[in-house]
Computed example of a mutant assay.
Amino acid sequence: MTLKVGVLGYRFMGKAHANAMARLPMFFPEAPEVERHVLVGRDEAALADAADRLGFERTATDWADVVDEVDAFYNLGPNHVHAEPSVAALEAGTPVLCEKPLANDLESAERMADAAAEAGVPTATAFNYRFVPAVRYAKNLIEDGELGEIHHFRGRYLQDWLVDPEAPWSWRNSEELAGSGALGDLGAHTVDLARFLVGDVERVSGHLRTFVDERPVEGGGGDGDPETRPVTVDDAYSAQAELEDGVMATFEASRFANGHKNDHAIEVHGSEGSLKFSLERLNELEVLRGGDRGYETVLVTDAEDPYVDHWWPPGHVIGWEHTFVHENYEFLSAIADGEEYHPDFEDGLAVQRVLSAIQESDERGEWVDVA
């Protein structure tokens, strides 16, 4: 069975997913055969060049023309275009993978999840960090009771690409286009890993901050004065949270953390042990078991570790891009086999509810229950 895939978006995430689809037959021969069928975008010249580089059969400038002719539709556009194309594809009975956060507001995310439930086909919210072997290894430890009763979850996601106040404005700085800033862009990943590893978020107390109120527009302005646009989203956020079973949690993300390029780190502490993980050392998991005086660094590259048997001999590490291969393998296999897939749109909606509650908490200055 060959699955025809249509992809909206050809920049950062378009490259990541196209690369993943190209790698599947080499390393996951049991995966369904995939045809990179159509690439969708607005700029015809740039689109044609991208389709040639990324291996797509053809291009289209209107997503409405393709959502009913493919076996899977990947919505990798900016947050404000997640809802309409995804809902249209689902109404056509087409499985959809959508980038995170699921939408730029809670109402749109609810509409997308409702459409997914009505369609009854596999959906995916692109939380690719669930597919890091070390994260899967951590989940197995927790589920096997190795850490005992879980007391704490800590998660932070730090970047520094906006520290310079002259860094140009982009759609990620707009509430209308992105919904939120570091909260949705980075925090969504952390919240999803908390749900994946420990449990649902029940209530939150959040704080959001914008450090630079306006930014120059690339190529804009005149007379020596650059044109600027307002920044209407957060540059950083932090939150206290209570997870199910009374687990205490803290979440934090910033695009102003000088010296941090892509530092997504989590900790889980239990009555019998603890674990620590950092995306910048994604092949390693630090594990503390009862009776140990310190953490053991486990190199998660053995053949029996999650997904690793598809790659290299022990100790030959994999990278960030491989998480997309695992994600695509699981999602496309679910489509081919007619099976359930997670994280789906319901998972994306659950995260969106937490993001919305954190924003509401910041506005109200008090704890907010997650609906």
Rank of each mutant, 00 (worst) to 15 (best):
Y237V: 02
Y237M: 15
Y237I: 07
S238Y: 04
S238D: 14
S238C: 13
Q240G: 13
Q240E: 14
Q240A: 15
A241P: 10
E242T: 15
E242G: 13
E242K: 12
E244L: 06
E244H: 01
E244D: 15
E244G: 13
D245C: 05
D245Y: 01
G246N: 01
V247D: 02
V247C: 06
M248K: 12
A249P: 08
A249V: 08
F251Q: 06
F251G: 09
E252H: 13
E252N: 10
S254T: 09
R255E: 13
R255D: 13
A257D: 10
G259D: 10
K261H: 12
K261W: 12
D263Q: 13
A265L: 10
I266G: 05
E267K: 07
E267Y: 02
V268C: 05
V268P: 04
G270V: 01
G270P: 04
G270S: 05
E272I: 00
G273W: 00
L275T: 00
K276P: 00
K276W: 09
F277I: 01
F277L: 05
F277N: 02
S278W: 08
R281G: 05
L285T: 01
E286G: 05
E286M: 03
V287M: 02
L288Y: 00
L288G: 06
G290N: 10
G291Q: 03
R293S: 14
G294L: 05
T297F: 04
V300D: 07
T301L: 05
D302K: 08
A303T: 15
A303Y: 11
E304S: 13
D305K: 04
D305F: 10
D305M: 09
D309L: 11
D309P: 06
D309F: 11
D309K: 11
H310L: 06
H310I: 01
H310S: 07
W312A: 15
P314A: 13
G315H: 00
H316Y: 11
H316I: 10
I318M: 11
W320G: 09
E321D: 13
H322E: 11
H322V: 07
T323V: 13
T323Y: 08
F324G: 01
F324E: 03
F324C: 01
V325A: 05
N328A: 14
Y329I: 02
F331R: 12
